[in-house]
Amino acid sequence: MCGAVRYEAETDGRFSVCYCKMCQRWSSGVFMGAPTKGVRITEGQDVLTRVRTSDWASRGFCSKCGSNIYYHADAQDHPSIAFGSLDDTSGMEPRIQFFFDKKPDGLGLDRETKTMTEAECVAHFAS
């Protein structure tokens, strides 16, 4: 948001939606992140705070303004970049909604995507 952290990242035009309670708490309700083929921090390396948020993943945020920057699961080679931090999201589409059974009752996307429950996510990512 403040512009202190800048990066270059290549996505495949898709992003994921996650309703796990950690993502809900981090991102005001739901996290949307685009898997990347690598992220290169070009500015603000010193203000990018990296924090271990579970046994299987880390997150990065801007310490000057609190903006969500990335989510990085150990099982994945590269981080997923916070959708709203991308300069250009034209044409990008949601691919999947994780922890769909944890979605708050009062909100939901206007379109259908593939979904995975918590049990399916844990079986898939923790094994």
């Binding site: 992003f15 939606v17 309700g29 589409e93 009752d105 009062g106």
Partner: peptide, 28 residues
């Protein structure tokens, strides 16, 4: 809202700056 269990039992009813919403998602 995400700080609270089940978004505090609230329901999404409105949107601000709809002209800034990305094309990739919207809420039902």
């Amino acid at each position: 809202s995400g700080l609270f269990p089940n978004a505090g039992g609230t329901k999404l009813v409105g949107e601000l700056f709809t002209d800034k919403r990305p094309s990739g998602y919207a809420f039902a």
